[in-house]
Amino acid sequence: MRLDASDMLVRVVGASRDAIRQLRAIAPAGMDVVDEPIAEPDWILVATASQRLDAVASSRLPPFRVLEAPEIAEVNQSPSDALRTALVRISGIGARRLREAPFAVRLTALIIRRLMKAQ
């Protein structure tokens, strides 16, 4: 059971440079905060509702893994409690685990199609 935050990728959308720097500073060990597009993030942190809409549609992550935190657009001196809370929540729930390996699903689907034809 994986319950720590090791090797977890959090993509941030719509954050200021200062916010990203601060997020990296307060991120728990093992959590990588990135602001460039990556193939398979575990979580996405966005600043606005429309960014969340786009992120859910484009990433195919379950919507609960795309969090809206308006604070990341403008971070002042210190990160807000809400931001810390979001990261704690992210690390508490953990990285996304693929339910079934895509290759195995494709292979099994091939076999199932053959079985269905044979029916």
Binding site: A49, S50, R52, L53, V56, P62, P63, F64, V66, E68
Partner: peptide, 10 residues
Amino acid sequence: SAARPRAGVT
């Protein structure tokens, strides 16, 4: 928190 977001709804 788990639902598909729609425009204008947070």
